[in-house]
Simulated scan of single mutants.
Amino acid sequence: MALLTLDEAKRQLDIETTAHDVELQLYLEALAPVIEGYIGPVENRIVTETLTSHGASLCLRQTPVVSLTSLTPVLDGGAALDVATLAVDTVTGVITRRDRFLFCPGPWTAVYVAGRGTVPATVKLAAAILLQHLWRTQYGAARGAVGGGDDYAVTEPVAGFGYAVPNRVLELLEPYKMPPAVA
């Protein structure tokens, strides 16, 4: 699953030839890290990470969570817990035990799938607009108004994104924004 296919990108940019396909593929590959930096994983991926217990819960770092594959204590060669005995909040990544017992301090190894399963339409549109914005930079001032007349102008940097991501993209992604992290 990709945020945008090559054909979708070419339609967005009104490109009808294959002359820019290699360069365009580089732009397409650059979209996911930018968008996922704001809303978390979009494309499903298997994640393996080491966690420390907080007593009643464990917290996965990459959300949203599609499914939990395994949860195994690292010390003493412990056996994996039956994932059917665990509850996973797919939005926050918090794992709790259905029997309400506490987790031993750990560490624990969690294997899970993070992502969204499908790309929501607004995320796909945000990716298309971001692609169009980034693609236009290769032409400089020759292909657009300078000094704020450009519909894709980013006049104020957004915290953490600089000038690379237009506000319209961030507004489309807002409903999917990651919850604040807990330190």
Rank of each mutant, 00 (worst) to 15 (best):
M1A: 00
A2Y: 08
L3E: 08
T5H: 01
T5A: 02
D7Y: 09
E8N: 00
E8W: 02
K10H: 10
L13C: 01
D14L: 01
T18W: 02
T18E: 07
A19C: 04
H20D: 14
D21C: 00
D21Y: 02
D21F: 01
V22E: 07
L24E: 06
Q25I: 03
Y27G: 14
Y27V: 15
E29M: 09
E29N: 06
E29C: 02
A30E: 12
L31T: 11
A32F: 02
P33D: 07
P33Y: 09
V34N: 03
V34T: 13
Y38D: 15
V42A: 13
R45W: 07
T48H: 12
E49Y: 07
S53G: 04
S53V: 00
A56H: 06
S57F: 07
C59F: 08
L60Q: 06
Q62V: 03
T63R: 12
P64C: 04
V65I: 09
V65S: 00
V66H: 06
S67Y: 01
S67V: 01
T69S: 08
S70V: 11
T72K: 15
T72G: 15
P73N: 01
V74Y: 04
V74R: 13
L75R: 15
D76H: 13
A79Q: 14
A80H: 14
A80K: 10
T85F: 04
T85D: 15
L86M: 12
L86P: 11
A87C: 10
A87Y: 12
V88H: 07
V91I: 07
V91S: 08
V94G: 00
V94M: 05
T96A: 02
R97Y: 04
R98Y: 02
R98H: 04
F101A: 08
F101T: 07
F101V: 08
L102I: 06
F103S: 01
G106R: 06
G106K: 04
G106W: 06
G106S: 08
W108F: 02
A110D: 10
A110S: 03
V111I: 03
Y112W: 10
G115F: 02
R116Q: 15
G117A: 10
V119G: 12
V119S: 15
P120K: 09
A121K: 12
A121M: 09
T122W: 09
L125P: 12
L125G: 10
L125S: 15
L125K: 13
A128T: 12
I129H: 05
I129W: 05
I129P: 03
L130V: 10
L130Y: 09
Q132T: 14
Q132R: 12
H133K: 08
H133G: 11
L134H: 06
R136V: 08
R143A: 13
R143G: 09
R143V: 14
R143M: 13
G144I: 05
G148A: 00
G148P: 00
G148W: 02
D150V: 04
D151W: 14
D151L: 13
D151I: 11
Y152R: 11
V154Y: 01
V154D: 00
V154S: 05
T155V: 05
P157L: 11
V158H: 08
A159R: 12
G160K: 10
Y163E: 11
V165W: 07
N167L: 11
N167H: 07
N167Y: 05
E171P: 03
L173R: 08
K177G: 09
K177F: 01
M178A: 15
P179M: 13
P180K: 10
A181P: 10
A181V: 11
V182M: 11
V182N: 11
V182K: 13
A183W: 12
